[in-house]
Amino acid sequence: MDWTDDKSLQLIELYSERSVLWHAEHPHYKSHSKKNEAWCDIAAVIAVDAGEAKRKMASLLATYRKVRHKVLKLREKGAGADDLYEVTWFAFESFSFLEQSYQPRPSRQLIKSEDDDKALAVRARRKRKCGSVSSEDSQAPASDCTAQLSIAGPRSECGEFEAVGINVAAKLRRMDPEQQIHAEFLISKVLKKGLLNQLTEHCDVG
């Protein structure tokens, strides 16, 4: 399809009207099915394949981030109004709706701190479960506790799968909107192959 400027602006407008696709606070933001429905609606309006609409939006979002980055850098340097970067890209203003949900990426130190906190929380839950087995075991080191849990029951009782889910969700929140779309699509494909017992060490999920 030939994506004219007008067609691209129409795509952006339709995308902005469906905040489930880009607003992390939307109640169905994590629903893969709801997002697919939104993309199908968009595709039907502009008469293109949903996959093509997604790819075009990903391209537009990437350009928007680059232009926005230049503008913010000049503002940080304290440039005057006359010196500000002149935005000539046709779609920049159309993406203004993203400003309400835009979150700066956390520093590496903050990410490490968050991951450490999550790991401590998981270990604390394991220790509490071990403590319920016997009063003597409550004094055992965390490593012994983990070993006891592995023998006592399935891993799901230890909350390991839940912890993985929380960790994946946290990383998705730190991604840009179009990267979230690609990541969710690939995760869905991996899970489907796993349920069908098709996963191998060299499995291609592209």
Rank of each mutant, 00 (worst) to 15 (best):
V71W: 13
K7W: 01
G78T: 08
F185H: 06
K112F: 10
L11Q: 01
G153V: 14
A50H: 00
T63H: 10
A124R: 07
S132G: 04
V71F: 09
K112Q: 13
A119T: 08
F185Y: 14
K66L: 06
G165F: 04
R65A: 08
V20W: 00
C130D: 00
L98F: 04
L60Y: 02
N167L: 13
A62W: 06
Y29V: 05
V190M: 14
V133W: 01
Y29R: 09
S188T: 15
E178C: 12
S33V: 15
F90D: 06
R125I: 00
K77N: 14
R174E: 04
A183L: 09
W3V: 00
Y15K: 00
K112L: 07
K171H: 06
S143G: 03
D83W: 15
G131M: 02
V122P: 01
D6L: 06
I166P: 01
K73W: 07
C145Q: 07
V164T: 08
L61F: 02
D49M: 00
S132W: 03
I46C: 01
K77A: 14
F185P: 01
P106K: 13
E162D: 10
E114S: 13
D137H: 13
R173H: 15
R65K: 10
K127R: 04
S188H: 14
S150N: 11
S107N: 03
Q139I: 10
I151H: 12
M175Y: 12
L61S: 01
Q148S: 08
G165C: 02
A79C: 15
C158M: 09
E93M: 09
A43F: 13
H202T: 11
K118N: 01
L84E: 05
R55I: 02
F95W: 08
T4D: 00
C40G: 09
I181R: 10
S150L: 15
G206W: 12
G165K: 02
S16K: 04
D49V: 01
L199D: 15
